[in-house]
């Protein structure tokens, strides 16, 4: 694997801020134009009120998260509208993070399929090719690995912190039922 120590960030789980930020800076101008010309084929209707993400980001995140955590005999990303959950947990004033997520999604949609020789946008690929594309990102270079790690981590964190993901992994969940204190703050 090629080493590139000048690259900005390794990321994992939800902690994607810095790396995808750099990716957004690197890819966004060209890809934003491409995105404007090639809308995501999956027509997941966005929630009426998005908290932080744009409608396009929401649609792309829905497609990508479904590839990372497919719905089969057990719940997956689409079972809980994972993209909407991630949107709800993203602070609207965290512009850097939002820009970073957007840049990473655009990279996956428009550049990553080239890694497996595909010219179609990611959202137009079949399920097997989507998974193949994402796995190809992991290991192609530190750059693509960073995007893969970031988006994978984001999706896995918010899926497996949701009750829908617990039964299949044997996690019995919190021992108490209390509200999120952030929702009570400043009340």
């Amino acid at each position: 694997m090629r080493q590139d120590h000048s690259l900005p960030a390794a990321t994992r789980r939800l902690f994607i801020q810095r790396s995808v930020l750099a990716l957004a800076a690197a890819f966004s101008p060209a890809l934003l134009q491409a995105a404007a010309n090639t809308p995501a084929s999956k027509s997941t209707p966005p929630p009426k009120t998005l908290h932080a993400l744009s409608a396009d980001d929401y649609r792309l995140l829905s497609v990508v998260s479904d590839a990372i955590i497919p719905t089969d005999e057990t719940p997956g990303a689409s079972s809980i509208d994972l993209a909407a959950r991630i949107d709800r947990y993203t602070a609207p004033d965290d512009k850097e993070l939002i820009q970073g997520i957007s840049g990473a999604l655009l990279f996956i949609e428009h550049k990553a399929p080239e890694l497996i020789g595909e010219k179609k946008a990611f959202s137009r690929l079949d399920s097997a090719s989507k998974e193949k594309t994402l796995l190809a990102m992991n290991g192609a270079s530190p750059l693509t690995n960073t995007v893969f790690t970031a988006i994978r981590g984001l999706c896995l964190f918010y899926f497996y912190t949701h009750e829908a993901g617990w039964k299949q992994i044997g996690y019995d969940g919190p021992l108490i039922q209390q509200a999120n204190p952030s929702l009570k703050a400043d009340a």
Partner: peptide, 23 residues
């Protein structure tokens, strides 16, 4: 599980299978 789900490199059905080993 949220933190630990990030371990490893898998996605898709293979990751689901690995997560079933969590206990």
């Amino acid at each position: 599980p949220g933190i630990l789900a990030g371990f490893g490199k898998t996605i898709g059905k293979e990751h689901k299978r690995l997560m079933s080993e969590y206990p």
